[in-house]
Design a protein around this nucleic acid. Sequence first.
DNA 1: CCACTCAGTGTACAAGTGAACACAAATTCA
DNA 2: TGAATTTGTGTTCACTTGTACACTGAGTGG
Lengths: 210, 210
Amino acid sequence: MNNRQERKLLTRQSLMNAALQWVEEGQHISSLSIREVAKRAGVVPTAFYRHFNDVEDLALNLVDELSKVLRQLMREVRQHRTDPRSLIRDSLSQYCEYVFRQRVYFVFLAQSLTGGTLTVRNAIRSELQYFANELALDLKRLGLLPQLSADMLDNVTSLTIHTVASSTMELLDLPASNTVALAQFQRRLQRQLQLVFLGAAHWQPKPAQA
Amino acid sequence: MNNRQERKLLTRQSLMNAALQWVEEGQHISSLSIREVAKRAGVVPTAFYRHFNDVEDLALNLVDELSKVLRQLMREVRQHRTDPRSLIRDSLSQYCEYVFRQRVYFVFLAQSLTGGTLTVRNAIRSELQYFANELALDLKRLGLLPQLSADMLDNVTSLTIHTVASSTMELLDLPASNTVALAQFQRRLQRQLQLVFLGAAHWQPKPAQA
DNA sequence: CCACTCAGTGTACAAGTGAACACAAATTCA
DNA sequence: TGAATTTGTGTTCACTTGTACACTGAGTGG
């Protein structure tokens, strides 16, 4: 057999996958018991403690794991860039496709952003902030919105990320088969983001108050 | 004693308040047991079934109840209107104050929007859509954004409502004592909404794509 | 090679769980 | 008044839960 470390990592991932399976079935992570997750992972309940202190500890590690995966996704989307005129649409399209491929990741993150413990919530929020910062860097690189202050640029990118995150929650409830609703959703989100960037492009130090 | 209906309503509300108390303590509604909520409400476990089928049924009724309360809030905010130039800031200020006064309402709704059952999620979403529609009506009444199509106006108001909802989740984690962070939050959200409306004001049938 | 480490096993127990059932008491209604 | 309705009680059942404890047996390292 393989060495001990590898085998330990394997059951650790089994436990994490079992937790995600629970979430995929529509359950909330907070209602997952140690015995249940152990059973699904194919190990005895007490084996759970070799890896995590409790279910919340598992959830926190799950957030860390998924953060890595999502950062990788962002890098891929960055590289696939084509025409800057359709940047929003193309990025969104890739993103939505990925959400469907890895649906449970986003269900779990959405659940935990509002329903996890304070530690978990903050972990996810800091991850969202990371994405907002990366987006701000990209805009700088592309020379977009140069007139905005750093503070205002952060407002724009944060709003963008939060809008995408918020809309993703709706996307998660659209049946994968309903392609027309999916297209509608995408166009809708696309227009909302265009609204934000249009507003950002017209922003001046003392804008008119609507 | 009072008549039977009134007394039944009283224990029903005791059960609902007990559930909210559970949420207020940082727990998730899905991890609330019938025995626990009954104990907190001061009734015997089986009495629970006289009012609800299960905890999810209670949650659904809780959503209905809070929807009424929030609609009432919206009407109050509408009447308090002062200068249309500071409409966003004034409305936001009132809203934030209310969030702090009735914190647990919003914690529960935020939790359930992402962590409830499909029925609960849809109930909350339709409530958000209601608010977006009302906002659209108000804008029409005030003669704002007259050039937008009905579809695009809905995009604007939905984005507004979702931005407020999304930001509320962060607001809920700000300590009530930290007034400086609260002011920062409010200015930040205010600017984001101004961005949206600025973008909406400049929207044309074929806008430049950012 | 042999003691050591340690991931996973198996047992055990007290506490908590949903739900069925018969019951009590009080309001409602004829 | 007296029967019916209905809210809340108390008991009981089989089941699940977290976690402590001693254990096994396969890597690991001197």
